[in-house]
């Protein structure tokens, strides 16, 4: 058990990063999410198969906690004020900080299920197959969500969309009413 909690502690920085991205950069909300995840992980640790990989297991727990939170909040997924402290540790130029805020705010505006795929692949660098397992969705869905997430993010950060020939972007507003998958 001590060994197990030690291994979990090692994963906290990565979980905090994922949570920070999911909450659009809000530190408090992100750490709440991490705390809930850790509590669930400890409560369920007997279900963890030793020898299995701990990191995807913890991320899948965080996914469940996050989805429940989103449901509970009735889609009032906040576009939260970005924490000042986001850029701690990297001596960032002001311009740089502005970019950091912009991109995290934009991520926070994506529909939750797009946000998850985007962050797991782009930031946490899980493979498509791992991402599919963590989220419990088919790999094809991972790919299509990823494409849409990236396209929307480009639009939100003021870049032209991937191609003008493509059908116009539709920002997905709610988790329940998502148009496909």
């Amino acid at each position: 058990m001590t060994l197990f909690s030690h291994r979990i502690t090692e994963q906290i920085p990565g979980l905090r990063r994922y949570a920070r991205a999911l909450t659009g950069g809000n530190r408090e909300n992100a750490d709440d999410l991490v705390q809930d995840t850790l509590e669930r992980a400890y409560a369920k640790w007997s279900l963890f198969r030793f020898g299995a990989e701990l990191r995807p297991w913890l991320f899948s727990i965080m996914h469940n906690v996050f989805v429940n939170d989103v449901r509970r909040m009735r889609n009032r997924v906040p576009v939260c004020p970005i924490d000042e402290a986001v850029a701690i540790g990297t001596p960032a130029t002001q311009e740089n900080q502005v970019q950091v805020r912009e991109i995290l705010t934009a991520v926070g505006r994506l529909a939750p299920e797009f946000r998850e795929v985007l962050v797991l692949v782009s930031i946490e660098e899980f493979s498509y197959a791992e991402t599919a397992r963590i989220l419990g969705i088919p790999m094809g869905t991972v790919m299509s969500r990823l494409f849409r997430a990236r396209t929307q993010l480009r639009a939100l950060t003021g870049e032209p969309s991937l191609s003008d020939a493509r059908p116009g972007l539709r920002l997905v507003q709610s988790f329940e009413n998502r148009p496909h998958d």
Binding site: Q99, I123, R154
Partner: peptide, 30 residues
């Protein structure tokens, strides 16, 4: 553009990995 976006995403949260872990997270105990 997509490569830049991917890099920007990663860079934006790099600093979280080296932040000190808040006590309340370390206190979550089995």
């Amino acid at each position: 553009a997509l490569r830049a976006q991917r890099k920007a995403l990663r860079d934006s949260l790099d600093s979280v990995l080296v932040e000190p872990i808040p006590q309340r997270l370390l206190r979550v105990a089995p």
